[in-house]
Amino acid sequence: MDYFKEFFKGVWQKNPILVLGIGMCPTLAVTTSASNAIWMTIATTFVLLGSNILVSAIRTIVPSHVRIPIFITIIASFVIIVELTLKAFQPDVYKALGIFIPLIVVNCIILGRAEEFASKNSVLSSILDALGMGLGFGLTLFILATIREVLGANKLFGYVLIPGMKPAILMILAPGAFFTLGLLLWAMNVIKSRKALFKRTE
């Protein structure tokens, strides 16, 4: 088993947002600033890691016809742990992300990975899968958020970039999220098809 491949597939080949097309709701909603994106990634990756480990550890004893309620119970417990921890020790982050922390429970990436990967593979490869998927999710979110924050608010991590310049507010609003995501998907597909073309000509 190639562990590096297991880890890296979440970043590129099976990037949850750009290739699998799951987890779009937080992607579009919280990418208004780079720091929001980073905190969202930390919270989601923690839940993903926890649920992948547990789902994979109990995969042999879970009867397949009741697996979904069991997965959801596990995921929801981790989400509540994240929510309480942030509320207690990072109240500003909790305030900024608001409703999107409890909504991690319905993030398709987590249930999707539990169902598709963790319930069929060993604990170690599930850990790698979770970390890789988290990194892929985080990188996409971070690129999206950076583009949107720079263009839409003239800021990066809350610092003004060009004093006195009026930003293109559209980019921080909902349409800006769709534009940026569309461009990212386009870029991703261009690179992929170029690579495939090269392979064929060789």
Binding site: V30, T32, K95, L97, G98, I99, F100, A153, I172, L173
Partner: peptide, 12 residues
């Protein structure tokens, strides 16, 4: 408040 991050949440 539970307003949209980046929009209504800018009230804080």
């Amino acid at each position: 408040q539970n307003e949209t991050p980046g929009l209504g949440a800018r009230c804080v």
